[in-house]
């Protein structure tokens, strides 16, 4: 909780700093302009949707590196078949069960062969990126989207961008599952200590399956939103490295790669922090070539601060 408070404070301070900096240099705060805020929320929404999935898997003690490739897979197949005249809605509806199956597969091989989740999902990262590039012959495809499909990535309701609304809805569902259902409790417990949960008579394979299926489904939905947002797909680049941004958002938001820790709200804060940093750096004129370094530095500071806090706590327990 303390960590989450820290991140919220950091977020507020960062936004205040951006405003003050802009006001003092240009006489107005461009950051607060509706168009900038809408754009920001749109991008927070996009990042947040698949970061939620990463958060659930990380809470259950795993990791999913296939997120970006799943996004590419869904976006590519949708664009490809839509060009044949099939409704993108139907294609997405067909792809989501495929995503669920992929999540099940990750859980299955982790449980059945005791594979490290890192390896199990790294293989999928490679496989589905290659698959998406292969079926599209490596060429970019422009989506001839219907207005309705275009709406999920670019529309807004009362000025609030659709991706952010989708994030809030999905976040609400995931938060409910994590906090108010038996399965949510099991997900946290498995992340803490899988063996102790197994020795409590609980099917840990089922719990793990829920985590990976949730993550793959959210990645699939993110793929559809991404396609709608950009209106085209570049199979080699769409969703590239997204799994890493998702892990960064989840960890900044209070998830621990040790498992068992984290909140949905925190993941959304983490995603917001990353996007506000990007946006702020653009507005104050930090060259985009340097921006990853800055975000990387913030991530490592956050993680070290958390680890140092835990070490202090552990010492207090012992004494």
């Amino acid at each position: 909780m303390k960590k989450l408070m820290g991140m919220i404070i950091l977020l507020v301070v960062l936004m205040a700093f951006i405003c003050i900096y802009q006001f003092s240099t240009t006489g107005e705060a461009a950051f607060l302009k509706p168009i900038n805020l809408a754009n920001l929320l749109q991008r927070v929404g996009m990042l947040g949707i698949y970061s939620l999935g990463a958060g659930v898997v990380i809470i259950s003690g795993g990791i999913d590196l296939s997120i970006g490739s799943v996004i590419a897979l869904v976006a590519t197949t949708t664009a490809l078949f839509a060009a044949q005249g099939i409704s993108p809605w139907i294609i997405v509806a067909c792809m989501l069960p495929v995503c669920a199956l992929l999540g099940w597969w990750h859980s299955f091989i982790v449980g059945r062969f005791s594979l490290q989740p890192f390896m199990a999902t790294l293989a999928s990262l490679l496989f589905f990126r290659g698959f998406a590039r292969g079926i599209a012959d490596g060429k970019g495809i422009t989506l001839d989207a219907t207005p309705a499909f275009n709406f999920i990535g670019n529309g807004n309701i009362f000025g609030i961008p659709m991706p952010f609304i989708i994030l809030l809805v999905l976040g609400g569902i995931v938060a409910f599952i994590m906090n108010y259902t038996v399965m949510g409790r099991y997900l946290f417990a498995v992340g803490r200590n899988t063996e102790a949960v197994r020795y409590s008579g609980i099917k840990v394979n089922t719990v793990r399956t829920v985590a990976y299926v949730t993550c793959a489904l959210l990645a699939g939905i993110a793929g559809a939103v991404e396609l709608s947002y950009t209106g085209e797909v570049q199979p080699a680049n769409t969703g590239l490295m997204y799994e890493m941004w998702a892990v960064a958002a989840a960890v900044l938001g209070g998830c621990s790669l040790r498992g068992g820790e984290g909140t949905v709200f925190g993941v959304i804060i983490g995603a917001a922090l990353i996007r506000v940093m990007e946006n702020g750096m653009n507005l104050v004129g930090i060259p985009s070539d340097w921006q990853w370094s800055v975000i990387g530095a913030v991530v490592i500071c956050g993680v070290i601060a958390d680890a140092a806090h835990k070490q202090r706590q552990a010492k207090q327990i012992k004494s």
């Binding site: 409790r185 946290f188 417990a189 803490r192 200590n193 063996e195 102790a196 949960v197 020795y199 409590s200 609980i202 068992g260």
Partner: peptide, 16 residues
């Protein structure tokens, strides 16, 4: 390692 979940509360351990 197996009997209890050390980092979870007494309540959640008893009711798991």
């Amino acid at each position: 390692e197996l009997g209890v979940l050390l980092e979870m509360g007494v309540d959640k351990n008893i009711t798991i």
